[in-house]
């Protein structure tokens, strides 16, 4: 399950010091992980400040909206956001556009449910679920939930539940037009310029070639990748 803990040395093929940019990975992963890390850090600081203020007023603890409760883990997973995004990309073969569209879904969630925050307790589950739904929307050929569950470190049953939760929280509004997609790409790039890294995102809304794969491969299929387990 996706809980606190490290990858065992034998199970993770990359050296810890290898950065996303050194690998042949889409630039969107680097941009997105940077932004999400900042967002999570800011939100957690926010919760701390509010907790302190409420403690001072003897109002009890901070009670944020429960919209994202289903995505909450007991503890924050030890795997970093960049490593987690890299893992999803590496083992699911989804197109880079799926990460931008997944980001759109998370953005829509936070606007539809402004009392709920993206934190270290829910960001990983939100990511794997939103990227998986994006892949179902964008890619004519995609892996099924069982593969995403294995890659994401959650059970198949839990991921199915998270998928339904995401769809209903978004009122099934998961269509992203080319215009909206382009504006989010521009926004992500602008954010990187502000931070001193002028990166351009891969624009093509095209599914990656998956000639050697069947549609909807199950984890038992010999052709499906066998990602290392996320261990406690």
């Amino acid at each position: 399950m996706l809980t606190a803990g490290e990858y065992s040395n034998h199970s993770w093929p990359l050296q810890p010091e290898t950065s996303l940019t050194e690998l042949n990975l889409p630039r969107v992963l680097c941009i997105l992980s940077s932004m999400l890390e900042k967002l999570v850090a800011r939100n957690e600081k926010l919760v701390d400040i509010l907790s302190q203020q409420l403690d001072g007023l003897n109002c009890g603890s901070v009670r944020l909206g429960n919209s994202l409760n289903t995505f909450h883990g007991v503890r924050a997973p030890s795997i970093s956001i960049p490593k987690y995004l890299e893992r999803i990309y590496k083992y699911t073969n989804c197109s880079p556009s799926c990460f931008v569209v997944g980001y759109v879904y998370i953005d829509r969630l936070t606007h539809r449910h402004p009392d709920s925050l993206v934190t270290s307790l829910n960001v990983h589950r939100l990511l794997v679920t939103s990227v998986m739904v994006a892949s179902k929307m964008l890619d004519d050929e995609h892996y099924n939930n069982a593969v995403y569950a294995r890659v994401g470190g959650v059970s198949n049953t839990e991921l199915n539940k998270l998928e339904l939760e995401l769809l209903f929280l978004l009122d099934f509004r998961v269509m992203v037009s080319s215009r909206v997609f382009e504006s989010y790409c521009f926004h992500l790039e602008k954010e990187m310029v502000i931070n001193g890294t002028g990166m351009k995102i891969e624009r093509a809304l095209t599914p990656k070639a998956m000639d050697d794969l069947e549609t909807e491969i199950s984890v038992e299929d010999k052709q499906s990748p066998s990602p290392p387990q996320i261990v406690d």
Binding site: K136, N145, N156, L167, F172, R173
Partner: peptide, 21 residues
């Protein structure tokens, strides 16, 4: 949703999201 491995079928997600728009 008979197939546990599949979750919500992709065509259903597409259909519903499109009809919403």
């Amino acid at each position: 949703m008979v197939r546990l491995s599949q979750g919500v079928p992709a065509p259903i997600i597409r259909e519903v999201s499109l009809l919403k728009e």
